[in-house]
Design a protein around this nucleic acid. Structure first.
Length: 241
DNA sequence: GCGACAG
DNA sequence: ATCTTGTCGC
């Protein structure tokens, strides 16, 4: 598969049988995570978001993903790629194992971009995860690309103190005496975001990069666009039935 | 045994 | 995540 993905070999993404095997994979891959690097000078990033049918919905289980290529210099979307893969063999949603459900569609969407991203923005946790390998870290390590996780809800860790209501403020997200991410108030009066480095990005740098992408809404603009694109594709598939 | 729990 | 219109509020 020729594609936009980084030079070098892209390993086959293995789907484990159950959570025990999945956790083993996570513990193995977490040691490859590099929590250092400055993405400030990178121009092209890909924002990723997914959409799934309800468990009780009889609409054919399609795992839908959108990859939005974003030019930081122009502050614009330059390309959109989507994918819909059969969700039959995928994991159900289980907290802590999101990557085994969503990464297959992400890989397909990324492969359809005509030019490679230098950084990945993923809807979910980076290293702020019980085993240190949230979906952003997993995908970053798999593709050997810098990545950052942006989650709308907490999965793991404890905010250090109270977060002021003022836009732009952040407090550290802690676990076992160490910082694993940030709780970030992107806009005044909205629920905070949970930011954590995925791979090859430093702790402070992950926050600053996200700060540079926030516009008038709660989510950083590239991720907001990816969310809209995934939702649109979901709608189209629904009415096609 | 009791909470917590990305999407 | 998904099913969904109008409506309350800054």
């Amino acid at each position: 598969m020729r594609g936009p993905l980084p030079p070098g070999e892209i390993p086959q993404f293995i789907l484990p049988r159950g959570t025990g095997e999945a956790a083993q994979i996570q513990r193995q891959l977490r040691d490859k995570v590099v929590l250092q690097g400055n993405p400030a000078g990178l121009r092209f990033l890909a924002a990723l978001d997914a959409s799934h049918p309800t468990r009780f919905s009889r609409q054919q289980g399609a795992s839908v993903a959108a990859a939005v290529l974003w030019d930081r210099e122009a502050a614009k979307v330059v390309e959109v790629a989507t994918a819909a893969v059969d969700a039959t063999g995928l994991f159900p949603y289980v907290p802590g194992f999101l990557s085994f459900r969503e990464i297959p569609a992400y890989l397909e969407a990324l492969a359809r971009l005509s030019s490679p991203p230098q950084l990945l923005l993923v809807d979910g946790q980076g290293v702020a995860h019980p085993r240190g390998l949230g979906i952003a870290s997993h995908l970053g390590v798999h593709l050997d690309l810098p990545s950052i996780g942006v989650a709308k809800r907490l999965l793991y860790g404890h905010p250090e103190g109270e977060l002021a209501e003022e836009a732009g403020r952040a407090v550290r997200l802690m676990a076992k005496g160490a910082q694993i991410g940030w709780v970030y108030r992107s806009r005044a009066g909205v629920r905070p975001l949970y930011i954590s480095p995925g791979h090859r990005v430093g702790m402070l740098e992950s926050l600053e990069l996200i700060r540079s992408l926030v516009g008038r809404t709660r989510l950083p603009e590239p991720l907001r666009q990816a969310h809209l694109e995934a939702g649109q594709l979901r709608r189209r598939l629904n009415e096609a039935v």
